[in-house]
Write a protein that binds this DNA or RNA. Structure first.
Lengths: 241, 241
DNA sequence: AGAGCTGCGTACGAAAACGTACCGTGCTGT
DNA sequence: ACAGCACGGTACGTTTTCGTACGCAGCTCT
């Protein structure tokens, strides 16, 4: 679960691509600043309005940022894996979280205290720049989700979600219930059911009782709307600084 | 078209609430750094992928940030008036614009060169903090739009848009065609037509050939989904630093 | 083995929204 | 005054999605 980028010999590699993109000087002391934590599915990392105590850099967990509406419905407004971090508010000069985030697919994260994060933001322009460029990608993806939710079908959005998640867990298999996917996409469960059927019939995926397996990633990507590729590119660009 | 916040005597007041929220020290030289420009409706300020030459602080214009899909459709993913600025990428350590923005409702903006903007970001922590907290509100609103587009009806979203725009132009009257509103919301024109009818029948607004007038703002706000209020609060919070 | 929970298939009427098309109406420029 | 055009009312058949409901299957725990 480490070394997803070619590690430089002797350097600490977190497994989080964002941290791994830091130059050598900025990785000094990183190991001491990070606590590796296992997150179970559906475990919250931060709730809306709360004072943030930590920032989380996913390693092989997938986290979701969601907006909660007044009637209690939640809709996913961002997905974060090893290419990013939560809570992004910390990089925007705010100690308060304006959204809820939680673990979507179980795995590990590197957890850094807000104090250490802010200290690094203040002391290293390179670190701060990388974090802010990542927030830029997060903004891009939130905007893309807005357009996507307005224009794309449940099938396209389901395929997008599965493709994105496949990339982030770094594996073709992961676990997620229909109900949860329906909530994330802001649609009804029968809609997800129909989409999953269609995807399974084309041979792109199989699923069984919450266990998904991607059989044909190119086919799945092709079924997904352009938003998959657009967000992928945006995050890739943010890692290049 | 100036002095929307109580001006301190002798201080330059731009009419943009974000700039006006700056402390006295940070307003030094602001007048020299800003060029007041009149924007016609539908005039682009920046296109996606372009190198940004300027940042625009709306005074009484309303700008839209849109995502353009591959089939040419555009969907509004952010609305910016005198409480904010475009292009936000400049505050996230990027010289490239990742979205297109253009003038939605004609009016004036204060335009600052990217060089002067970056110089202020670098030299004043207060300025940088205010800009980044505004980007935080922009992120919040993009996320809210994502949830809104997934969950709320055309009527609610139309009312939200009109309420938001009314606040931003600082007037109960403004101009906008049905076609354009339909594009912004990512829906068909008949949908907007029906929503406008319903809103006019309740007495919240009137419209005639693209000229809208808000008659009963509280009623309009009540018809709008919660996203109106949520975004309003987010931007208000960003102005308080 | 049985109870109970979670995950999922499915059906179906209702509602929302789409897309397209056609036509009126009020500006605007010559 | 007239043509041309932008604006937008309206209609209608089609598609998508919703919401709800019911039932079955597989896992787990006792």
């Amino acid at each position: 679960m480490r070394a997803t980028l070619p590690p430089k010999p002797g350097l600490y590699v977190s497994g989080n691509r964002l941290l791994d993109a830091l130059p050598e000087a900025d990785r000094a002391g990183l190991e001491a600043d990070l606590e590796i934590v296992s997150l179970e599915a559906h475990k919250f990392t931060h709730s809306v309005g709360g004072v943030m105590s930590h920032v989380n850099f996913p390693i092989d967990a997938v986290l979701s940022v969601v907006a909660t509406l007044k009637n209690g419905e939640t809709v996913e407004v961002g997905t974060v894996g090893r290419e990013g971090f939560v809570e992004s508010d910390a990089a925007l000069d705010s100690p308060l979280s304006q959204r809820t985030s939680f673990c979507q697919v179980r795995g590990t994260v590197g957890r850094m205290s807000i104090e250490r994060f802010e200290a690094r933001m203040a002391s290293s322009a390179t670190f701060a720049r990388l974090m802010r460029r990542n927030v830029r990608a997060l903004l891009f993806s939130a905007q893309q989700f807005a357009a996507c939710n307005a224009k794309h079908s449940i099938l396209q959005r389901s395929a997008r979600w599965l493709s994105m998640t496949g990339d982030r867990v770094g594996s073709a298999e992961f676990t997620l219930s229909f109900d949860f996917l329906a909530i994330m996409l802001g649609v009804g469960r029968p809609g997800v059911s129909a989409a999953a059927d269609a995807l399974q019939n084309t041979g792109a995926i199989t699923y069984h009782r919450g266990a998904w397996k991607i059989l044909d990633k190119p086919l799945l990507n092709a079924t997904a709307c352009e938003c998959y590729e657009a967000c992928k590119l945006a995050f890739a660009a943010s890692l290049r600084g």
